[in-house]
Design a protein around this nucleic acid. Structure first.
Lengths: 256, 256
DNA sequence: CCTTGACCCTCACGTAGCGTCATGGTTTAT
DNA sequence: ATAAACCATGACGCTACGTGAGGGTCAAGG
């Protein structure tokens, strides 16, 4: 067998070894039509030409970038714009990174909780929240929501929060509140896009720290902001009418 | 049907709604034995007790943390240590985050290449450094700095860097360079506080990726930027005179 | 009594990207 | 001639369910 520079026909095992893939992978690419060898020997063996290899190299690059095989196929067949596809993929990846980061944070907390067995005491929480006691709020919450998933999540998560966590949460929360506050003082109506965006920020905040706040739950929360004097008072401490404003914005956000 | 506080038996739809899951999911958990309802009605309906719900809540928390169902099962059946499992999971996640970060960088580069009209080739993907070969650079570095502490650190660290690491480093480096570049093109003098701040960023970058860059070393490096044509050429590839500008800024930063 | 609608059940196929046999033909070296 | 490589085509397995198909159960209404 001549192994010279003119050798342009390679068998599948040959290709597999030089590309670091397995034969099964090449079989698969053949099956789905992503890389169909341009020739077959009389005995049925797959024969890969030089241009097949080029195509394979391109496939590998895009695969490395995280694209799915169908997407790669549509790029190679020029049915799709590479840049656009890559941009979409990039967006998905950054989302995943964010989510994973959040998850690792939660795992850190869960581990710390597990190890130390130390739970956030009501005292610690109080020192951060001032006169608004989240523990007390939780009792009420349990009555209202019973043993819903949201409540369970909230309990489990908040149990793992340390004092500094609460400080972070509080800072985070007041940022969200300030967002609403500035909008309100500017006279922006609650139905304004900016206010609706703030609603989303608010929901994200809750989901991040307490429980997965679904739109339904969020609506209920918004109603409670004006129905429950404890909530109203706590929010209006920052500015009169803020609770009503937030509630209105939340209502507007989800009114189809 | 009484919907009071004593209701301890729930049907599958009931459970599904309050947990935000689908019925199929609960069927699945039953199938794989992760959550087998403790009772069945005479008609075959699944009956979930209160303790079933507790188990479900725990499942959901661990699922939220990214664990697989088999792992969750082994934790719940106390065949595995939760903390250990979580730690392993966390390690996997950080790995994935690192890889994803590298991939997004590659995508950025691929998109940039695409925009410039260049085609994605395997070569491009593999050699992010273009014609500046860090290995070659290191040989020279050893001659110059011999066995200094800085050089040892650099070797040790860079030896451990993966391809994606280098990509991150390059992206990071070009950010720093762009900082200097924009200042230079704006006509900001090297002695301007903004330029001095950029010098600190630069030093941090080096300390972060290569070795602890003391002010002394930094000064030496700055001098080399104009003394060594290889450095000069590599930097000035971005813009003519950038090496000189950076060198001047570094000099200004440490002139007491 | 029959229908309607809201529940519930059990299969069982489909997903992405191959890994991993199972079973068998072809070629080359000994 | 036989073993060692190499090739082929199925076909099932893996996650965590989604999505029907096809069919019981149960209460309310006509």
């Amino acid at each position: 067998m001549v192994y010279g520079r003119t050798m342009t026909k390679r068998t599948i095992g040959n290709v597999a070894r030089m590309s670091g893939l397995t034969i099964r992978t090449l079989h698969h690419y053949d099956d789905i039509g992503l890389l169909v060898p341009s020739d077959r020997a009389t005995n049925g063996y797959r024969i890969y030409s030089e241009s097949d290899l080029e195509r394979l190299r391109t496939i590998l690059v895009y695969r490395e970038l995280g694209l799915g095989l169908p997407e790669i196929a549509s790029i190679l067949d020029e049915d799709a714009d590479p840049a656009e596809t890559l941009l979409r993929e990039r967006a998905k990846l950054t989302d995943r990174i964010e989510r994973l980061r959040g998850i690792t944070d939660m795992i850190d907390k869960a581990i710390a909780d597990q190890r130390k067995g130390r739970k956030m005491s009501a005292e610690d929480a109080l020192s951060v929240f001032g006169d608004f006691d989240p523990a007390e709020y939780q009792e009420e919450a349990q009555e209202r929501w019973g043993d819903t998933d949201a409540y369970a999540q909230s309990t489990l998560r908040t149990a793992a929060y340390t004092k500094t966590d609460w400080e972070t949460i509080k800072a985070d929360a007041s940022q969200v509140n300030d967002l609403f506050l500035s909008l309100m003082t500017e006279g922006v109506p609650p139905s304004d896009p900016r206010a609706l965006e703030a609603v989303d920020t608010h929901r994200t905040h809750i989901s991040r720290w307490f429980y997965e706040c679904t739109p339904e739950i969020h609506v209920g929360l918004g109603q409670m902001y004006i129905a429950d004097p404890r909530f109203t008072a706590n929010i209006d401490r920052e500015a009169d009418g803020l609770a009503a404003y937030m509630s209105a914005a939340i209502g507007a956000r989800y009114s189809s």
